[in-house]
């Protein structure tokens, strides 16, 4: 420390200041500038434990999601299945109808039996059977019996209106 160039103040002031400041004793605590490095070392020492804890948390979370389905993916899947089941609700209720249908079909089957046996046959079979017997009695075959036939059909033998 170099000497003071000049001494503008009296020695009384300097001695008083020196005695006042010398009474203040510095506390030599551990240097704080060394603390960040030590903290970094401690963090690096704790790094494996922190990684292990994070791995355990990840595994527990995945196991919980797979088992109970609290994860959003499982909830979405459940919601989709519920929506599908609601959309196909009429198809799923048809098995309950056969219990009512036989009750309605029994009178339907009993009624044709009481009315006429012709209605039991399908309607397409009736025209196929009925024209066959009538086809032999058609007017086309009546031409062959024209000589022995009726007289009112042909006006050839009738007298002419001239009166000759």
């Amino acid at each position: 420390m170099p000497k003071i160039d000049d001494s503008p103040l009296g020695p009384g002031f300097e001695s008083r200041l020196r005695s006042a400041l010398d009474r203040v004793q510095p506390t030599f605590s551990s240097p704080r500038y060394m603390t960040p490095a030590r903290r970094a070392i401690r963090v690096w020492r704790l790094a494996p434990a922190i990684l292990a804890a994070m791995a355990v948390l990840a595994l527990s979370a995945s196991a919980f999601a797979a088992s109970s389905g609290a994860s959003p993916a499982v909830l979405i899947h459940r919601a989709a299945s519920a929506i599908d089941s609601a959309a196909h609700a009429p198809d799923t209720t048809t098995p309950a109808e056969p219990s009512t249908e036989p009750v309605q079909q029994e009178p339907a089957k009993a009624a044709p039996a009481q009315s006429s046996p012709e209605k039991e046959a399908p309607p397409r079979q009736e025209p196929s059977e009925s024209p066959e017997p009538t086809s032999s009695q058609s007017p086309e075959e009546s031409g062959d019996h024209s000589n022995t036939g009726s007289t009112d059909t042909e006006p050839a033998n009738s007298p002419s209106p001239r009166g000759d």
Binding site: L17, T27, S29, R32, T35
Partner: peptide
């Protein structure tokens, strides 16, 4: 450090505050 501490004691008037500031100053200086 002792000289800086005494300077700060004269400025701040409190040894605890002086020590805190001195330590912070050495941290910044480091």
């Amino acid at each position: 450090y002792p000289r800086v501490f005494r300077t700060l004691s004269a400025i701040l008037g409190d040894p605890a505050e002086a020590e805190d500031c001195a330590q912070d100053a050495f941290v910044q200086g480091f």
